[in-house]
Write a protein that binds this DNA or RNA. Structure first.
Length: 319
DNA sequence: ATCCAGGCTCCTG
DNA sequence: CAGGAGCATGGA
């Protein structure tokens, strides 16, 4: 399936709350295993196709400001880009990159923690980045369960490959996230042939069906108190506490949602706080109490640190 | 081979 | 209710 477009682009400026480092977001996306639908150019342009109100469009985003005085240019392209759709795209971008959040309270809180505060001093303008679509966040969390993220990326690519559409703009092709109905229609055997375990295949198809049928509604969950949203999510087979917390944080942007069982988080916290071993989930939760209100932001900060470690880290860990 | 990876379910005590 | 065995898959 292919959707072509050669209509002119609409463009507008976005002004994030300061300080904001868009370059940091880009460098995160460049090596983030979950980012298979984004394209980041060397010139610093973020490109991503997604559906807005059913319309496939292409987002192009780049910085025209500084960390202290951030300004982002947004360009929207698609078959019929109306002013309303452009406004919708701008809202979406502001949400994905959390452009309207005030980071000051988080930095103030983190400064009281010598270790986290020290880490953040090297990351001025840091801000968490959401996964562009809540359904995508849920899929990614399932795919990432108990496997190396590198392999999770392979699985995500397979999913996009099997049932994702493509948006073509000026001759370039941009992959779209598969729609829930398309994932729901997949044969589990097909997924198994693409290296999905039985569980992952079953979880993914079942959840996609729930989303397609409207049983699982992200906008409804988003409006709920976190504990209730977690409870509703974990009612689904294959969705445990870690997955639900991950969806709240990376899918909804819940600032205080901490996937404490995360092995990466446990490992880096064990190292950073000198435990000499991987921290337990309970230890992570304990340590995180001083970050209350911003535990999700703290988690993202640690993931960022983790990513930087593995990039420039001990020889042989690349690839 | 063995161990581990951005866990989950299900079954014990 | 806490803790742990067993589970599926690929990569180092």
């Amino acid at each position: 399936m292919e959707v072509a477009s050669r209509s002119p682009a609409t463009r507008l400026m976005l002004t994030p709350t300061a300080p904001y480092d868009f370059g940091l977001a880009l460098s995160y996306l460049r090596t983030s295993p979950s980012a298979v639908l984004e394209r980041i150019s060397e010139a610093g342009v973020y490109e991503r196709a997604l559906r807005l109100e059913g319309q496939p469009i292409l987002l192009r985003l780049w910085s025209e400001g500084t960390i202290a005085a951030p300004r982002l240019a947004l360009e929207v392209r698609g078959a019929c880009v109306t002013p309303a759709l452009t406004a919708c795209a701008a809202r979406r971008v502001r949400h994905i990159f959390l452009l309207d959040e005030d980071p000051t309270p988080f930095f103030a809180l983190a400064a009281r923690d010598a270790i986290l505060g020290g880490l953040l001093r090297g990351l001025p303008g840091m801000r968490p980045l959401l996964i562009a679509d809540p359904f995508e966040a849920l899929l990614w969390a399932i795919l990432g369960q108990q496997v190396h993220v590198r392999f999770a990326r392979t699985l995500k690519r397979a999913l996009v490959d099997l049932c994702g559409a493509t948006l073509s703009v000026d001759g370039a092709a941009y992959p779209l996230l598969p729609e829930p109905a398309a994932v729901a229609a997949l044969d589990e055997a097909t997924l198994r042939g693409r290296q999905f375990s039985r569980q992952k295949a079953s979880y993914v198809v079942t959840l996609a069906r729930a989303v397609a049928e409207g049983t699982l509604r992200f906008d409804a969950l988003r409006a709920l108190p976190p504990e209730e949203a977690l409870a509703q999510l974990t009612a689904y087979k294959g969705v445990g506490r870690w997955t639900a917390e991950y969806v709240l944080m990376r899918g909804f942007g819940a600032p205080d949602s901490l996937p404490a069982a995360d092995v990466g988080l446990r490992a880096i916290i064990g190292r950073a706080y000198g435990l000499g071993r991987t921290a337990t989930e309970a230890e992570v939760r304990e340590r995180a109490e001083v970050w209350a209100g911003w535990r999700g932001w703290a988690a993202f900060t640690w993931w960022l640190a983790l990513q930087r470690e593995t990039e420039s880290g001990p020889a042989g860990t690349r690839r």
